[in-house]
Amino acid sequence: MQKKIITAIFIIAFSFNIEAAYNSNKYMKVVDVQGNVKLEVEVKSSAETQAAKKMIQKPARLGDLLFTRDYIITGASSLTAYSQDRILLKVKENSSLYLDSTFDKNENIVFSLNNGEILIVAPMSYNPDYITVYTPDNSTINISGTAIISYNQNVTRVQFLHGYGKLNGTPVGQFTEVNLKDKTTSEIVMSDSLKNRVNEILGMQYIDKVSQVNIYRDIARLNNSSFNVKQIVTPLESEFIIIQ
């Protein structure tokens, strides 16, 4: 009888451990696929050792989970994923993105953008070190809020919209665009291009769980001719240095 009680306690404790591990296992889930997107994922058969892992390509599907060391290859398509930590990631057309770490030991997210463009929307309250993006020209971009990052023709460009971030360790304020090849900066002003970006953000699934949607709605309604985008955005508590 005593053995049965001990066994039952062990089984219950083991079950709780499994549940706790599952609940703490953060992930990114594919929530939108437009066109033919490829995922290059790591697989290992039961007969292989951990060191003998190999990569295979498969079509991306709604509900797929994205893990560390996965590649996303979009071609003329796009993919959007949503994480448990209220982060939206959109990999735009003709892009290749490597997931260095979906959630590392410090719970941070690290991506490498090999080419193309990505859109990241995260709560503005997050520490910018929480999300890091690397590009092939050795640029390091940290994000808090919403940012568009592109790497094309050996040039990294970053647009910080709502929120702020850091470029190679230098803090950058919101509504700023930076060309990291020549280190030029410019203020993002109202235009049809910005409105298209904002409407794209508003159309993303789960956007109401991630960001202050009303700010984007206000921007989308504004007139191009008489507008300073910073006038309708709540000022940040700190001033940020713009890269010169």
Rank of each mutant, 00 (worst) to 15 (best):
190 M>Q: 07
189 V>P: 00
83 S>Y: 03
79 L>T: 04
47 A>P: 00
103 F>S: 11
227 F>A: 15
18 I>C: 04
146 T>N: 09
195 K>W: 02
243 I>D: 00
29 K>Q: 15
13 A>P: 05
61 R>F: 06
19 E>T: 11
72 I>W: 03
142 N>G: 04
167 L>R: 01
237 E>V: 14
153 Q>V: 00
199 N>T: 10
174 Q>K: 04
105 K>F: 10
170 T>L: 10
184 T>P: 03
16 F>Y: 12
218 D>K: 15
198 V>C: 08
89 L>V: 10
62 L>Y: 06
215 I>T: 15
94 N>K: 14
181 K>M: 10
32 D>I: 05
192 D>L: 08
233 V>P: 10
76 A>P: 07
146 T>A: 11
191 S>T: 11
69 R>G: 00
56 I>H: 00
15 S>F: 13
89 L>E: 09
239 E>I: 10
88 L>F: 04
190 M>R: 03
211 S>G: 06
140 T>S: 08
36 N>M: 04
126 Y>T: 05
210 V>I: 10
36 N>F: 03
218 D>Q: 15
178 V>W: 07
52 A>E: 15
183 K>M: 15
226 S>W: 03
60 A>T: 07
208 D>C: 01
68 T>D: 02
144 S>C: 11
44 K>V: 07
21 A>D: 06
217 R>Y: 01
100 D>C: 02
37 V>W: 09
219 I>Y: 03
128 P>I: 14
138 N>F: 09
47 A>S: 13
10 F>R: 00
72 I>K: 12
201 I>Y: 09
19 E>H: 02
161 L>C: 04
122 A>K: 04
58 K>F: 02
35 G>Q: 06
146 T>K: 07
65 L>H: 07
70 D>S: 02
198 V>P: 06
43 V>N: 01
40 E>Y: 02
3 K>Q: 13
184 T>S: 15
182 D>W: 01
174 Q>W: 01
237 E>D: 11
35 G>D: 04
29 K>E: 14
61 R>E: 13
139 S>F: 01
124 M>V: 12
188 I>A: 06
12 I>H: 01
21 A>S: 13
219 I>R: 09
236 L>W: 07
